[in-house]
Amino acid sequence: MHFSLCDCILDLVQNSVEAKAQEIRLILKQSEDSFIVCIDDDGRGMTEQELKAATDPFYTDGKKHIHRKVGLGLPFLIQTVSMTEGRFDIQSEKEKGTSINIEFNFKNIDTPPLGDVISLLYQVMCFDGSFNLIVERSYIDDRGTDSYKVDRKEMQEILGDLSRVSSLSLLKDFIISQEEELKTSWSSTS
């Protein structure tokens, strides 16, 4: 199983990229008790049977690795969510796209640690391909919501090729500064 929640999410976004999605939206809503994650893509999607099979750890379409008998991405996530009283929902339509909604439950002691949001965000931005990815990250408490947004197309327009070390480190610095601002506003309101 993945060590942190961010590792699970990285895995899911990689699925969207591999499903040839052109538009991916990743929403991360964090509060004291929960972490809500939504991933929407317009990739190749799955039929009802494929979707059922994708949640079975002993199923794989066998195209990527011809002798392999397991497919663990989604099953890992489902296992994590079900043993920690979280929520998981996946909708998919063939040739239209897939949409995943998850709620991780921070109140349960077995929920894995959140992990490193900063590396998650810059790493999903530099996956190979011409897709666009919009990340909406927010923190919610009873006093309100603070959020920021990162748009892959916009970052590419400003920074050029995101896989180049100098651009990627600037992207990381940018995300660090957004994340710090988010954290400052949490601590100042609490």
Partner: peptide
């Protein structure tokens, strides 16, 4: 994820801009 993070940090320190980092499956 941690490995990529360390690689990026070290490459930045070394200051060589002619490096491309990609992620594969």
């Amino acid at each position: 994820k941690e490995v990529l993070d360390v690689m990026l940090g070290e490459l930045k320190k070394v200051g060589n801009d002619n490096v491309i980092i990609r992620q594969a499956g």
